[in-house]
Simulated scan of single mutants.
Amino acid sequence: MKYVIKRLRRSDLTFFEYQYRIQNAGNQKSLNLTRRVFIDVLFPSAPEIAANNGEVGAPKPFHLPLTIYGPGERRIPQIVSRSVLPKTQKQKNWRLNGEFVRDPDEDPNRYHALAADDVGVLAFDGDAFPTAVTLVLLSQAEPGDLGLRTAVLEAINNKAMGVITRDLLARIIEREASPTHPIREVLDSTLDEVLEDAALGSSSAVRRLRNSGSARRMSAKALQNARRNAEVTGRNGELLLNDWLQAEVEAGHLRSAVWTAETNAISPWDFVVEENDGTRVRIEVKSTAGPFERNFHISQAEIEWAAEAEAPRTDLYRLSELQDGTASLRICRDIRAVAAQIVAATSGLGVGIVPDSYTISPVQFGTWSEAVAIEVPDEDDDEEDE
Protein backbone atom coordinates (compact mmCIF):
# COMPACT_ATOMS: atom_id res chain seq x y z
CA MET A 1 0.00 0.00 0.00
CA LYS A 2 0.98 3.62 -0.56
CA TYR A 3 -0.06 6.08 2.12
CA VAL A 4 -1.13 9.70 1.80
CA ILE A 5 -2.32 12.29 4.32
CA LYS A 6 -4.80 14.82 2.95
CA ARG A 7 -6.17 17.88 4.68
CA LEU A 8 -9.79 18.21 3.61
CA ARG A 9 -10.86 21.54 2.19
CA ARG A 10 -14.46 22.69 1.87
CA SER A 11 -14.40 21.72 -1.81
CA ASP A 12 -13.26 18.18 -0.85
CA LEU A 13 -16.16 17.83 1.59
CA THR A 14 -18.57 18.07 -1.35
CA PHE A 15 -17.64 14.43 -2.03
CA PHE A 16 -20.17 13.64 0.71
CA GLU A 17 -23.79 14.26 -0.23
CA TYR A 18 -24.78 15.94 3.07
CA GLN A 19 -21.75 18.24 2.97
CA TYR A 20 -22.43 19.16 -0.64
CA ARG A 21 -25.82 20.47 0.40
CA ILE A 22 -24.52 22.63 3.28
CA GLN A 23 -21.07 23.81 2.18
CA ASN A 24 -21.95 25.98 -0.82
CA ALA A 25 -18.47 25.23 -2.14
CA GLY A 26 -19.14 24.63 -5.83
CA ASN A 27 -20.03 21.52 -7.82
CA GLN A 28 -16.82 19.55 -7.47
CA LYS A 29 -18.30 16.41 -5.77
CA SER A 30 -14.86 14.82 -5.46
CA LEU A 31 -11.57 14.73 -3.55
CA ASN A 32 -8.68 16.58 -5.19
CA LEU A 33 -5.50 14.53 -5.57
CA THR A 34 -2.53 16.87 -5.78
CA ARG A 35 -0.48 16.04 -8.86
CA ARG A 36 2.90 16.57 -7.19
CA VAL A 37 1.99 13.81 -4.75
CA PHE A 38 -0.42 11.50 -6.54
CA ILE A 39 1.42 11.45 -9.89
CA ASP A 40 4.96 12.66 -9.28
CA VAL A 41 5.51 10.39 -6.27
CA LEU A 42 2.92 7.61 -6.18
CA PHE A 43 1.86 6.76 -9.73
CA PRO A 44 4.14 8.43 -12.31
CA SER A 45 3.00 5.98 -15.02
CA ALA A 46 -0.71 6.66 -14.50
CA PRO A 47 -1.07 9.56 -17.02
CA GLU A 48 0.41 7.50 -19.86
CA ILE A 49 -1.65 4.43 -18.95
CA ALA A 50 -4.84 6.49 -18.76
CA ALA A 51 -4.07 8.16 -22.09
CA ASN A 52 -3.28 4.89 -23.87
CA ASN A 53 -6.47 3.24 -22.61
CA GLY A 54 -8.71 6.19 -23.45
CA GLU A 55 -9.37 8.34 -26.48
CA VAL A 56 -7.55 11.41 -27.74
CA GLY A 57 -8.16 14.18 -25.24
CA ALA A 58 -10.18 11.84 -23.00
CA PRO A 59 -7.93 9.63 -20.85
CA LYS A 60 -9.65 6.66 -19.28
CA PRO A 61 -10.51 6.83 -15.55
CA PHE A 62 -9.29 4.18 -13.13
CA HIS A 63 -12.34 2.46 -11.64
CA LEU A 64 -11.76 1.05 -8.19
CA PRO A 65 -13.38 0.07 -4.89
CA LEU A 66 -13.34 2.73 -2.17
CA THR A 67 -13.50 1.57 1.45
CA ILE A 68 -14.31 4.27 4.02
CA TYR A 69 -13.71 4.05 7.78
CA GLY A 70 -14.51 6.67 10.41
CA PRO A 71 -14.83 9.35 11.38
CA GLY A 72 -14.13 8.36 14.94
CA GLU A 73 -14.42 4.75 16.03
CA ARG A 74 -16.70 3.72 13.16
CA ARG A 75 -15.16 0.36 12.29
CA ILE A 76 -17.89 -0.90 9.95
CA PRO A 77 -16.67 0.16 6.51
CA GLN A 78 -18.75 1.74 3.80
CA ILE A 79 -17.64 0.20 0.51
CA VAL A 80 -18.54 1.91 -2.76
CA SER A 81 -17.28 1.94 -6.35
CA ARG A 82 -15.65 5.16 -7.49
CA SER A 83 -13.09 6.37 -10.05
CA VAL A 84 -9.84 8.27 -10.15
CA LEU A 85 -10.33 10.82 -12.92
CA PRO A 86 -7.23 12.01 -14.79
CA LYS A 87 -6.42 15.65 -15.38
CA THR A 88 -7.92 17.06 -18.59
CA GLN A 89 -8.19 20.43 -20.27
CA LYS A 90 -11.47 21.02 -18.45
CA GLN A 91 -10.40 19.42 -15.16
CA LYS A 92 -7.12 20.80 -13.84
CA ASN A 93 -6.62 18.25 -11.04
CA TRP A 94 -6.65 14.49 -10.63
CA ARG A 95 -9.69 13.57 -8.55
CA LEU A 96 -11.30 10.74 -6.65
CA ASN A 97 -14.72 11.08 -8.16
CA GLY A 98 -18.02 9.41 -8.96
CA GLU A 99 -21.43 9.81 -7.46
CA PHE A 100 -21.96 11.29 -3.99
CA VAL A 101 -20.99 9.32 -0.92
CA ARG A 102 -24.23 9.25 1.02
CA ASP A 103 -24.72 8.55 4.71
CA PRO A 104 -25.46 4.83 5.12
CA ASP A 105 -28.95 3.89 6.25
CA GLU A 106 -27.65 2.34 9.46
CA ASP A 107 -25.66 5.50 10.34
CA PRO A 108 -27.68 8.42 8.88
CA ASN A 109 -25.51 11.16 10.42
CA ARG A 110 -22.15 9.60 9.67
CA TYR A 111 -20.62 12.46 7.67
CA HIS A 112 -22.60 15.38 9.14
CA ALA A 113 -19.90 16.63 11.54
CA LEU A 114 -17.09 16.73 8.97
CA ALA A 115 -15.51 20.16 8.60
CA ALA A 116 -12.75 21.93 6.73
CA ASP A 117 -9.30 20.93 8.01
CA ASP A 118 -10.41 17.45 8.96
CA VAL A 119 -8.06 14.80 7.59
CA GLY A 120 -8.30 11.84 5.26
CA VAL A 121 -5.71 9.06 5.47
CA LEU A 122 -5.64 7.45 2.03
CA ALA A 123 -4.12 4.02 1.44
CA PHE A 124 -3.75 3.12 -2.26
CA ASP A 125 -3.30 -0.38 -3.68
CA GLY A 126 -1.61 -0.81 -7.05
CA ASP A 127 1.83 -0.40 -8.58
CA ALA A 128 1.63 1.43 -11.92
CA PHE A 129 -1.87 2.78 -11.27
CA PRO A 130 -4.37 2.72 -8.39
CA THR A 131 -6.49 -0.42 -8.11
CA ALA A 132 -8.19 0.20 -4.75
CA VAL A 133 -8.23 2.86 -2.06
CA THR A 134 -9.05 2.92 1.63
CA LEU A 135 -10.04 6.25 3.23
CA VAL A 136 -9.93 6.77 6.99
CA LEU A 137 -11.59 10.02 8.09
CA LEU A 138 -10.20 11.86 11.13
CA SER A 139 -12.60 14.48 12.45
CA GLN A 140 -12.01 17.37 14.84
CA ALA A 141 -15.42 16.54 16.29
CA GLU A 142 -14.29 13.06 17.39
CA PRO A 143 -12.13 12.92 20.56
CA GLY A 144 -10.54 9.66 19.45
CA ASP A 145 -9.32 11.27 16.21
CA LEU A 146 -7.69 14.42 17.63
CA GLY A 147 -4.26 13.06 18.49
CA LEU A 148 -4.06 11.14 15.22
CA ARG A 149 -5.11 14.16 13.17
CA THR A 150 -2.49 16.41 14.75
CA ALA A 151 0.29 13.83 14.44
CA VAL A 152 -0.27 12.90 10.79
CA LEU A 153 -0.49 16.56 9.76
CA GLU A 154 2.79 17.26 11.55
CA ALA A 155 4.30 14.30 9.69
CA ILE A 156 3.68 16.07 6.36
CA ASN A 157 4.64 19.49 7.74
CA ASN A 158 0.99 20.59 7.76
CA LYS A 159 0.82 20.61 3.97
CA ALA A 160 -2.45 20.15 2.08
CA MET A 161 -1.38 16.67 0.97
CA GLY A 162 1.71 14.57 1.49
CA VAL A 163 3.10 11.04 1.44
CA ILE A 164 3.75 9.23 4.71
CA THR A 165 5.76 6.03 5.07
CA ARG A 166 4.17 2.93 6.47
CA ASP A 167 6.69 2.82 9.32
CA LEU A 168 6.03 6.40 10.40
CA LEU A 169 2.27 5.92 10.15
CA ALA A 170 2.57 2.73 12.20
CA ARG A 171 4.47 4.57 14.95
CA ILE A 172 1.85 7.33 15.04
CA ILE A 173 -0.96 4.79 15.21
CA GLU A 174 0.73 2.88 18.00
CA ARG A 175 1.15 6.10 19.98
CA GLU A 176 -2.12 7.90 19.27
CA ALA A 177 -4.81 5.38 18.25
CA SER A 178 -6.99 3.33 20.54
CA PRO A 179 -6.71 -0.46 20.19
CA THR A 180 -10.00 -0.51 18.29
CA HIS A 181 -9.55 2.55 16.08
CA PRO A 182 -10.30 1.67 12.43
CA ILE A 183 -7.10 3.33 11.20
CA ARG A 184 -5.38 0.12 12.19
CA GLU A 185 -7.12 -1.52 9.23
CA VAL A 186 -4.85 0.24 6.72
CA LEU A 187 -1.77 -1.40 8.22
CA ASP A 188 -3.03 -4.90 8.93
CA SER A 189 -2.73 -6.40 5.46
CA THR A 190 -1.52 -9.58 7.13
CA LEU A 191 -5.01 -9.95 8.59
CA ASP A 192 -6.25 -10.80 5.10
CA GLU A 193 -3.99 -13.85 5.20
CA VAL A 194 -5.25 -14.62 8.70
CA LEU A 195 -8.82 -14.40 7.42
CA GLU A 196 -8.02 -16.92 4.69
CA ASP A 197 -6.52 -19.27 7.27
CA ALA A 198 -9.59 -18.82 9.47
CA ALA A 199 -11.84 -19.63 6.51
CA LEU A 200 -9.97 -22.92 6.14
CA GLY A 201 -10.52 -23.79 9.80
CA SER A 202 -7.37 -22.64 11.59
CA SER A 203 -8.23 -22.14 15.28
CA SER A 204 -5.21 -19.90 15.88
CA ALA A 205 -6.27 -17.71 12.95
CA VAL A 206 -9.80 -17.45 14.35
CA ARG A 207 -8.42 -16.35 17.72
CA ARG A 208 -6.15 -13.75 16.13
CA LEU A 209 -8.98 -12.42 14.00
CA ARG A 210 -11.28 -12.10 16.99
CA ASN A 211 -8.60 -10.31 18.99
CA SER A 212 -7.93 -7.90 16.13
CA GLY A 213 -11.41 -6.36 16.28
CA SER A 214 -11.42 -6.25 12.46
CA ALA A 215 -15.14 -5.91 11.85
CA ARG A 216 -14.98 -6.06 8.06
CA ARG A 217 -13.15 -9.39 8.19
CA MET A 218 -15.70 -11.07 10.46
CA SER A 219 -18.74 -11.01 8.21
CA ALA A 220 -20.11 -14.14 6.55
CA LYS A 221 -19.42 -12.52 3.18
CA ALA A 222 -15.77 -11.86 4.05
CA LEU A 223 -15.33 -15.45 5.18
CA GLN A 224 -16.98 -16.76 2.03
CA ASN A 225 -14.75 -14.58 -0.17
CA ALA A 226 -11.64 -15.66 1.72
CA ARG A 227 -12.53 -19.33 1.29
CA ARG A 228 -13.11 -18.76 -2.42
CA ASN A 229 -9.79 -16.92 -2.76
CA ALA A 230 -8.00 -19.81 -1.08
CA GLU A 231 -9.60 -22.25 -3.50
CA VAL A 232 -8.63 -20.08 -6.47
CA THR A 233 -5.04 -19.85 -5.22
CA GLY A 234 -4.86 -23.61 -4.81
CA ARG A 235 -6.30 -24.20 -8.25
CA ASN A 236 -3.95 -21.69 -9.87
CA GLY A 237 -1.01 -23.31 -8.12
CA GLU A 238 -1.91 -26.72 -9.50
CA LEU A 239 -2.41 -25.30 -12.99
CA LEU A 240 1.00 -23.68 -12.90
CA LEU A 241 2.72 -26.75 -11.52
CA ASN A 242 1.06 -28.98 -14.11
CA ASP A 243 2.46 -26.81 -16.90
CA TRP A 244 5.89 -26.91 -15.28
CA LEU A 245 5.83 -30.68 -14.79
CA GLN A 246 4.78 -31.27 -18.40
CA ALA A 247 7.69 -29.09 -19.48
CA GLU A 248 9.98 -31.22 -17.30
CA VAL A 249 8.68 -34.33 -19.08
CA GLU A 250 9.26 -32.78 -22.50
CA ALA A 251 12.80 -31.80 -21.45
CA GLY A 252 13.54 -35.39 -20.45
CA HIS A 253 13.84 -34.69 -16.71
CA LEU A 254 10.83 -36.90 -15.91
CA ARG A 255 9.28 -39.90 -17.66
CA SER A 256 5.70 -38.85 -16.93
CA ALA A 257 3.53 -36.56 -14.82
CA VAL A 258 -0.18 -37.07 -14.16
CA TRP A 259 -2.44 -34.46 -12.56
CA THR A 260 -4.35 -36.90 -10.36
CA ALA A 261 -6.49 -34.34 -8.56
CA GLU A 262 -7.88 -33.07 -11.85
CA THR A 263 -9.63 -36.37 -12.55
CA ASN A 264 -10.15 -37.53 -8.96
CA ALA A 265 -11.31 -34.68 -6.72
CA ILE A 266 -10.95 -36.75 -3.52
CA SER A 267 -7.43 -37.94 -4.25
CA PRO A 268 -5.19 -37.41 -1.17
CA TRP A 269 -2.38 -36.23 -3.45
CA ASP A 270 -2.35 -33.88 -6.42
CA PHE A 271 0.13 -35.41 -8.90
CA VAL A 272 1.94 -38.66 -9.59
CA VAL A 273 5.25 -38.46 -11.43
CA GLU A 274 7.61 -41.15 -12.65
CA GLU A 275 11.27 -40.29 -12.44
CA ASN A 276 13.73 -41.45 -15.10
CA ASP A 277 14.88 -44.37 -12.95
CA GLY A 278 11.29 -45.65 -12.70
CA THR A 279 10.60 -44.31 -9.19
CA ARG A 280 6.96 -43.28 -8.71
CA VAL A 281 6.42 -40.22 -6.53
CA ARG A 282 3.24 -38.66 -5.20
CA ILE A 283 3.20 -34.86 -5.05
CA GLU A 284 1.13 -32.75 -2.69
CA VAL A 285 1.00 -29.06 -3.65
CA LYS A 286 0.59 -26.20 -1.15
CA SER A 287 0.20 -22.79 -2.79
CA THR A 288 0.12 -19.28 -1.39
CA ALA A 289 0.29 -15.75 -2.73
CA GLY A 290 2.30 -14.93 0.38
CA PRO A 291 5.83 -15.88 1.49
CA PHE A 292 7.24 -19.39 1.78
CA GLU A 293 7.16 -19.27 5.58
CA ARG A 294 3.39 -18.85 5.79
CA ASN A 295 1.60 -21.77 7.46
CA PHE A 296 -0.41 -24.09 5.25
CA HIS A 297 -3.23 -26.58 5.78
CA ILE A 298 -2.90 -30.31 5.23
CA SER A 299 -5.70 -32.82 5.65
CA GLN A 300 -5.74 -35.97 7.77
CA ALA A 301 -6.18 -38.02 4.59
CA GLU A 302 -3.08 -36.45 3.04
CA ILE A 303 -1.09 -37.16 6.19
CA GLU A 304 -2.27 -40.77 6.49
CA TRP A 305 -1.49 -41.63 2.86
CA ALA A 306 1.94 -39.97 3.12
CA ALA A 307 2.68 -42.01 6.26
CA GLU A 308 2.02 -45.40 4.60
CA ALA A 309 5.14 -47.52 4.98
CA GLU A 310 4.88 -49.46 1.70
CA ALA A 311 3.44 -46.69 -0.47
CA PRO A 312 5.39 -44.57 -2.95
CA ARG A 313 7.03 -41.61 -1.29
CA THR A 314 5.19 -38.29 -1.08
CA ASP A 315 7.00 -35.05 -1.88
CA LEU A 316 5.67 -31.69 -0.76
CA TYR A 317 5.81 -28.88 -3.34
CA ARG A 318 5.50 -25.39 -1.89
CA LEU A 319 4.51 -22.63 -4.33
CA SER A 320 4.86 -19.20 -2.75
CA GLU A 321 4.56 -15.64 -4.10
CA LEU A 322 2.05 -17.03 -6.59
CA GLN A 323 0.75 -14.40 -9.00
CA ASP A 324 0.18 -13.86 -12.72
CA GLY A 325 1.41 -17.30 -13.75
CA THR A 326 4.65 -17.18 -11.74
CA ALA A 327 5.72 -18.58 -8.38
CA SER A 328 8.68 -19.59 -6.28
CA LEU A 329 8.96 -23.38 -5.92
CA ARG A 330 10.65 -25.26 -3.08
CA ILE A 331 10.44 -29.02 -2.59
CA CYS A 332 10.53 -31.17 0.55
CA ARG A 333 11.24 -34.73 -0.52
CA ASP A 334 9.68 -37.70 1.26
CA ILE A 335 7.51 -36.44 4.12
CA ARG A 336 6.76 -39.97 5.38
CA ALA A 337 8.63 -39.58 8.69
CA VAL A 338 6.89 -36.35 9.66
CA ALA A 339 3.52 -37.70 8.56
CA ALA A 340 4.04 -40.87 10.62
CA GLN A 341 4.85 -38.78 13.71
CA ILE A 342 1.60 -36.87 13.32
CA VAL A 343 -0.42 -40.06 12.89
CA ALA A 344 1.21 -41.56 15.99
CA ALA A 345 0.62 -38.42 18.05
CA THR A 346 -3.10 -38.35 17.25
CA SER A 347 -3.82 -42.09 17.38
CA GLY A 348 -4.55 -42.01 21.11
CA LEU A 349 -7.28 -39.37 21.02
CA GLY A 350 -9.98 -41.96 21.51
CA VAL A 351 -12.68 -43.69 19.51
CA GLY A 352 -14.68 -41.30 17.36
CA ILE A 353 -12.16 -38.45 17.57
CA VAL A 354 -10.41 -37.87 14.26
CA PRO A 355 -8.78 -34.55 13.32
CA ASP A 356 -9.79 -33.40 9.85
CA SER A 357 -6.76 -31.24 9.08
CA TYR A 358 -3.74 -29.45 10.50
CA THR A 359 -2.21 -26.00 10.28
CA ILE A 360 1.53 -26.55 9.90
CA SER A 361 4.58 -24.36 9.40
CA PRO A 362 6.75 -25.44 6.44
CA VAL A 363 9.81 -25.63 8.70
CA GLN A 364 8.23 -28.58 10.54
CA PHE A 365 8.86 -30.77 7.49
CA GLY A 366 12.62 -30.38 7.68
CA THR A 367 14.89 -29.75 4.70
CA TRP A 368 13.64 -27.90 1.64
CA SER A 369 15.33 -27.41 -1.71
CA GLU A 370 16.55 -24.03 -2.87
CA ALA A 371 13.85 -21.82 -4.34
CA VAL A 372 13.32 -22.03 -8.10
CA ALA A 373 11.29 -19.48 -10.04
CA ILE A 374 8.72 -21.12 -12.30
CA GLU A 375 6.27 -19.63 -14.76
CA VAL A 376 3.75 -20.60 -17.39
CA PRO A 377 5.72 -21.50 -20.55
CA ASP A 378 5.32 -19.15 -23.49
CA GLU A 379 3.02 -20.52 -26.15
CA ASP A 380 4.03 -20.49 -29.80
CA ASP A 381 2.05 -18.10 -31.94
CA ASP A 382 -0.44 -19.78 -34.25
CA GLU A 383 0.79 -20.00 -37.80
CA GLU A 384 -1.00 -17.78 -40.24
CA ASP A 385 -3.29 -19.44 -42.74
CA GLU A 386 -1.96 -19.43 -46.25
Rank of each mutant, 00 (worst) to 15 (best):
K90C: 08
A123I: 04
N97L: 03
P71E: 09
A141H: 15
F124P: 05
P143T: 06
L122P: 01
A141V: 08
P86R: 07
P108D: 11
V133L: 09
F129T: 12
A132S: 11
R74W: 01
P143A: 11
E99H: 14
N109F: 12
P143D: 12
E73I: 04
V133H: 05
A113T: 04
N97H: 14
A141C: 12
V136M: 07
A115D: 14
I68Q: 03
F124G: 10
R82T: 02
A116S: 10
A128P: 03
G120Q: 00
K60H: 15
V136I: 12
P104G: 00
L146I: 13
L146V: 12
Q89H: 13
G144A: 13
D117F: 10
G98V: 02
L138G: 07
R102G: 05
Q89E: 15
V121L: 11
P104L: 01
N97S: 15
S81H: 13
D125E: 15
T67K: 06
R95N: 12
P65I: 01
H112K: 07
P104E: 02
P61V: 05
N109P: 04
A113R: 08
N93V: 10
P108Y: 11
D118K: 01
G144L: 11
Q89M: 13
P108K: 11
R110M: 04
P61G: 06
D127W: 10
P104M: 02
T134P: 01
S83M: 11
G70L: 02
Y111V: 00
D103E: 13
G147W: 06
P143H: 10
E142G: 01
L146M: 14
T67W: 02
L122F: 07
G72N: 08
P65L: 06
T67P: 01
D125S: 14
L122Y: 04
A123W: 09
I76S: 10
K60G: 08
D125C: 10
D145Q: 07
R95D: 11
G72A: 12
P143E: 13
D117M: 09
R110Q: 07
K90P: 04
V121Q: 04
A116N: 10
L66V: 02
D117K: 10
L138D: 08
W94A: 07
R95I: 05
R95W: 08
Q89K: 15
R82I: 00
D117G: 04
Q91I: 13
L146Y: 12
L85E: 15
T88A: 13
D118T: 00
G98D: 11
R74I: 00
Q78W: 07
L64Q: 02
R95F: 09
Q78N: 11
V84P: 01
R102M: 09
G72E: 05
E99R: 15
K90I: 08
D125Q: 14
T134H: 03
R95E: 15
V121I: 12
P61I: 04
Y111N: 06
Y69P: 05
R74C: 01
K92A: 14
D125P: 05
L96A: 09
T67E: 12
A115S: 13
K90M: 13
N93S: 14
F124V: 05
Q78G: 03
G144F: 09
L122V: 00
A128S: 15
P77L: 03
V119G: 02
